[in-house]
Design a protein around this nucleic acid. Structure first.
Lengths: 187, 187
DNA sequence: CGTCCGCTTGACTCAGATCAAACTTGGTGG
DNA sequence: CCACCAAGTTTGATCTGAGTCAAGCGGACG
């Protein structure tokens, strides 16, 4: 084993509530989430927090930070999580040297771009009911309703009311406490 | 000249109002805007249109579509425009073969991701005045107020009113018809 | 068993959507 | 050169729907 070369990937375990990095800190790595749940938060000037990304098991996050000097958001473990920390400079070298790696990295970013575009589109919908509906169909509801609400820029109360309306309208099935299912994919 | 090899880049001129591509069409290229102004629009189910991107001279657009099968939005020339059409398969080959190209492509996408994150953050601000203020500081006001309004998910009336309030509050200077300038960068 | 957190619903208020109308500007064509 | 039209700008009046505050409920967890 070469003790001089820094490893590109190191596995780390963090418990629920701990920070992986914070807004403003210098970027040193991107991450792959093996198991658990990590959220990326941003704080607006007015102090309100916003969930800009929900990282689920088996996905990367903070990919864009590879080309950035400082992190643009906080990363907070929502559950105990196991992650792979991918060193920035190491990844940088791999991207420079291996076109295949670079290509799949681009693909990942391209997917991100399209997801964000969709989020922007959803957030531009004025009617809360329609907004919730579109977000549901886009598969944004993964965790709690509160997180879902924060992602689409509505208060949780507004979301609960919209969900109730959608159930009443027969567009949605309530399958349990905070659990919903789309009845038909009729937009 | 080799008539068998398709050129990767072809220059095209389009006049104001014409479409470069439409939502749902198969992706065949990404573009570089040499001069003019192109907007990317998406249509929500309810029929409302949304500006998801404003391409200005000297920038690429539809980069993400290189990895996509169909375009996710319309591209419409707002003025007479001169563009470089970059063939999808040609670019794909370059990305595969040249790590340098691939790397700078990634960088471009990473920048896009960060811009979208910022847009999502701005759109989550409830107060229209604060939303307008943040969007201004983020440099989102380039074209008309109407475009600006569509980008940040507000009606143009709300934006005009917010702008007037900001001027009254001394945070903004009105420098002409639909022209504003930030007085101090005090957030 | 008690506490915490997410869920859910009610009542009230007000900010922003909506509709409407006047004005400014730039372009087009007779 | 002027009449006309189209699009952006600006302001006013009204009203609805989402924010806010508040309170009760249920499950998870120590």
């Amino acid at each position: 084993m070469n003790y001089l070369a820094k490893p590109v990937a190191t596995q780390i375990n963090r418990e629920s509530g701990s920070y992986i990095f914070r807004q403003g800190e210098p970027c040193s790595a991107m991450y792959y989430l093996k198991s658990g749940h990590v959220q990326l938060h941003r704080y607006t000037m007015s102090g309100a927090q916003l969930i800009v990304h929900n990282a689920t098991a088996g996905t990367f996050f903070a990919e864009a930070s590879i080309f950035s000097d400082t992190y643009h958001c906080d990363a907070i473990c929502q559950t105990d999580s196991c992650l792979l920390r991918l060193d920035k400079t190491g990844i940088g070298k791999m991207l420079e040297e291996d076109a295949g790696v670079s290509m799949s990295f681009s693909k990942m970013l391209a997917r991100q771009v399209q997801i964000y575009r969709q989020q922007v589109e959803i957030m531009a919908i004025k009617s809360s009911q329609e907004r919730v509906w579109q977000a549901l169909n886009a598969g944004f509801l993964k965790g709690s309703i509160m997180d879902f609400s924060a992602m689409i820029g509505l208060t949780h109360e507004a979301v609960y009311r919209s969900l109730a309306q959608l159930v009443r309208a027969g567009r949605l099935m309530k399958t349990g406490r905070g659990q919903y299912e789309i009845t038909k994919s009729n937009p």
